Simulated assay, not measured.
Amino acid sequence: MKAPALLLTAVVALAIAVPGMARSRNVTDPGLPRSVPTEGGAVSVSWTDPAAFSELKYSGNRWEAERGTWVTDLATYLRDEAGQRLARGQTLDITITDIERAGRYEPVVRTGMDHIRIVKDIYPPRMKLNFVVKGPDGQVIAEGERKLVDHGFLTGSNLNSSDALRYEKRMVDDWLRREFKANAALTSTP
């Protein structure tokens, strides 16, 4: 293959690949939605501006902390798990107002290590949310603000899981179990 043809092939391949690689996604992109689709209409999950979340304000490396789709991933998980706990006809609206993931990016002595998230028991996962549960008739059954925190996140199961959000998901599971158990109206089926 001659050099001009090889160069043309490389340019075309690069032009095809670059749009997908041009910019990595981050949770503060203004063009991203601030909610997940309801999928069946029983549970809606939305969130406030992630730029104001504690995860970004106190992370030690804001640029690393805002990378990825972790807000959407947590909201999707919350929607799916909460949907399994509702009685027939009930709806649940959740607004996440703050997230602080387990661990933190610490300043380090060695250069090039500031992109590594350090997980210690002094950096537990936290989440603040508001919720409203409505019955089949549209009447409010339960509502409130919750401040979730899991101080024992390093103990128990799932410690060997490779899921980057395993601690936060377990905290969500614990909240759902407590919240829906405490209110018998939420878990009863007609």
Rank of each mutant, 00 (worst) to 15 (best):
P107L: 11
D80S: 13
E100T: 04
R79M: 08
I96N: 00
P107S: 13
G83F: 05
R101H: 09
R101T: 10
I94K: 02
D93A: 15
D93K: 13
R85M: 14
R85N: 11
Q84M: 13
T95A: 11
I99K: 00
L92M: 13
P107H: 12
L86P: 06
D80G: 13
A82L: 09
R104A: 07
G89M: 12
G83S: 07
G103C: 05
D98Q: 04
G103N: 03
Q84W: 06
E81T: 10
E100R: 14
E100F: 06
R85H: 15
D98E: 06
D80P: 07
Y105W: 15
L92W: 03
R79Y: 06
L92C: 14
T97A: 07
T95G: 05
T91I: 10
I99Y: 00
D80F: 04
E106Q: 12
T97P: 07
L86K: 06
T97K: 04
D93M: 06
A102H: 03
A102F: 01
A87C: 13
Q84R: 15
T95F: 04
E81F: 00
L86F: 10
R101S: 09
T97H: 08
E106W: 02
R79F: 04
A87S: 15
T95D: 04
G103Q: 00
G83T: 08
I94E: 03
A87D: 08
I94A: 01
D80C: 02
T91G: 02
A82P: 07
I96S: 00
V108P: 01
R101M: 12
E100K: 14
T95R: 15
P107T: 11
D98T: 01
G83L: 05
G83Q: 04
I96R: 01
R79K: 13
P107K: 11
A82N: 07
V108A: 13
E106L: 15
D80L: 11
G103D: 04
G89S: 13
G103M: 04
P107F: 12
G103I: 01
A102R: 00
G83P: 01
R101D: 01
G103E: 04
G89Y: 11
A87K: 08
L92E: 02
G89C: 12
E81S: 11
P107V: 10
A87I: 08
E81C: 00
I94W: 05
Q90W: 03
I99D: 01
D93I: 03
A102V: 03
T91V: 10
T97R: 05
L86T: 10
T95P: 01
E106D: 13
A82T: 10
D93S: 15
R101W: 05
D80Y: 00
T95M: 10
A82Y: 06
T97I: 02
T91C: 08
A102Q: 03
T95H: 01
Q84E: 15
E106R: 11
T95K: 13
G89H: 12
Q84N: 14
A82G: 08
A82I: 09
T91A: 09
Q90H: 03
A87F: 09
L92Y: 05
I99L: 15
D98M: 03
R88V: 14
T95S: 10
G89D: 12
L92F: 13
I99V: 14
G89R: 11
R88H: 12
